[in-house]
Design a protein around this nucleic acid. Sequence first.
DNA 1: TGCTAAGCGAGACGGTACGTCGAGTCTTGTC
DNA 2: GACAAGACTCGACGTACCGTCTCGCTTAGCA
Lengths: 202, 202, 202, 202
Amino acid sequence: MTIQGTGTARPAGRPRSEKAERAIIEATLDLIAEGMGVSELSIEAIASRAGVGKTTIYRRWSNKEDLVVDALATLKAPLPPLAGVSVREDLITLLDAMRADSGNRRGRCVMNIAMSEADRHPRLTERFVERAVEPRRRALREVLERGVATGELRPDLDVTLAMAILSGTMMWQSKWGPGDLPEDLAERVVDMVLAGMAPPAA
Amino acid sequence: MTIQGTGTARPAGRPRSEKAERAIIEATLDLIAEGMGVSELSIEAIASRAGVGKTTIYRRWSNKEDLVVDALATLKAPLPPLAGVSVREDLITLLDAMRADSGNRRGRCVMNIAMSEADRHPRLTERFVERAVEPRRRALREVLERGVATGELRPDLDVTLAMAILSGTMMWQSKWGPGDLPEDLAERVVDMVLAGMAPPAA
Amino acid sequence: MTIQGTGTARPAGRPRSEKAERAIIEATLDLIAEGMGVSELSIEAIASRAGVGKTTIYRRWSNKEDLVVDALATLKAPLPPLAGVSVREDLITLLDAMRADSGNRRGRCVMNIAMSEADRHPRLTERFVERAVEPRRRALREVLERGVATGELRPDLDVTLAMAILSGTMMWQSKWGPGDLPEDLAERVVDMVLAGMAPPAA
Amino acid sequence: MTIQGTGTARPAGRPRSEKAERAIIEATLDLIAEGMGVSELSIEAIASRAGVGKTTIYRRWSNKEDLVVDALATLKAPLPPLAGVSVREDLITLLDAMRADSGNRRGRCVMNIAMSEADRHPRLTERFVERAVEPRRRALREVLERGVATGELRPDLDVTLAMAILSGTMMWQSKWGPGDLPEDLAERVVDMVLAGMAPPAA
DNA sequence: TGCTAAGCGAGACGGTACGTCGAGTCTTGTC
DNA sequence: GACAAGACTCGACGTACCGTCTCGCTTAGCA
């Protein structure tokens, strides 16, 4: 009505409280980390733990999924910087980051949510893949393709399949493996798998 | 007094209906296959779809977890018979069974449930692992150890790690790979991975 | 089929157990006396307290009402014998029987049931009135009419109204009056009411 | 902090809806009038008929009794004004109000409930007596005592007993008498009973 | 003495209502 | 106009009985 629009129009009235927003996200992650799935998670519990009214949540996110996606997104560690020297080292760096991500309670829950709610909440999965999975996938692909180019890996390598092997192994380990993954896990995986990816004679 | 006890004494009263039991399991699996997680799943819906009173469900299973475990357990395909000739062939057979298991809607849901509810419902996971995961793990281990013994695989092979690579790759593919997994997937995985497991010189 | 009907045909098979029947009635009355209404009363509770299967109850009574009617019917004290000398004495006798009937836990409950379930369970009421109320009403009417005939009561007495006054007063007392009705209550009521029923001059 | 407290501080949050409250009471009375006792009465039915969630009922009344008491309390007609001229006229006025109260479906049900649930739901009875019975009892007592004072009634009258006679007669009639009580019933009762209460000689 | 038919206790069956909890929405007064 | 508080309708929870239905066993008279 009286928005004169000097650039980004500041809406009338009291601005939204960033403190509330942070409290909501934190409460959500806490509850997820305490073992709740998207469905066990109760908006009422989040509101209560965050010291916030339910309205304040629904004003920002129209449903649980959206809130969960945003909460999980704040959690993923940034991609580690790659040395770019050898393929082996870069792979170990990447896989080790995955191991670390799954090493703590929260990270493990992120994976659970991501993997389990796939069929149930397609939009959640879609957004999660876009934000968290794709960047890692892209980095992995780049390293492998570089390896093929530099001759560190065999020229006929099925890069997609190789990605599946590397990622899948790490995920499987963090899911079904021993509670605390050994520190040199990434190294050992890369070494074993690389053997099948190395050029025939070398 | 007049219990003659020919082995297991039949308890007094009307015996439980096997038909009802089957209907409940079927309804549960149907609903899971339609995309419901353990939490979205409503006992009321199961009862209604099975044409059964809620009491009849609660009489047998005291909570949702127990029911879901029993339902999932009826679902897993039996282990495929192994030819036992070459390690490569047996591995392909095993991995292909995993691919098939995950190829249909129900199988995929089984995995989702199993993987997602792990932290949330520890008893569910425990029982599921015991019934479904362990037998497959054991078979895989046997094949690999046989390969080491016969010299088809390198003598210093880390069998546990190899198992993780094989299983993880298949799981990852069925989770994040294309909708319909290619028929020769198992073969390609085995071939690539075997390269790193074969004896050094041969 | 082979009933030859020598008088009352004994049906084939095991005869019904009188012990069970008595136990059921007793259990029913116990539970009513413990403050349950026709609706709070649960067949399951009756069966359990009587040490009897539910079938055994339903075989005899097709619904709760019928059972309750039969149970209550066993409870009413028989009408007291009337001296037949003076109207005043006979009235006191009758009213005192009503007082005694309502003086104990069970009797009071009978009245509660009878009065409360009237609109709800018309058939119950109907049968209860027929068995328990009518005989008393008839006795009262006879005494009053005899009084009119003998001149002990005024000739233009509205007998029906007089009955209502006498009965109603007793019922009201047993319902809203003090817990233990005074022993001479009937006498005092009759005396006060008779004053209005006596012949004008006398 | 900022509660200025102009008398009774309004509690935080959305205030309770009076409309819902009225709808619940109305639905309750409707169902009672349709012949349901306290026990047949289902909260679910009340909620559904009132177009209200069950929670909204349980938020206000913690059990059926409390709801029923409140519902019945809204029903009782206010005490009729008394002319205060003659005892006879005032008694007729009071008794006629009782007759009218019991003349309609709802009123009759009120009495049924009140009388039947006495032993079963002591708190219900207690509160009902306090709200509905006591005021009438008090009015009746005052008229009778005035009559004794003015000499319209005999000086040695047992007022309590007289009250029982008058009230009991009316209740008995409305319970066991003909469906539609005659219009002059109160008059006739008072006249007959007064005869026994009038001063000896006059 | 053994057969047949009904009664018996136990208890499972498909249902209905209970009283509780949380979802997502709406409605207050305050900031 | 955002905020906390909390009432709103709705629907699932797990429990208790309903009245019906098997079960295997008992109890009688008739053969």
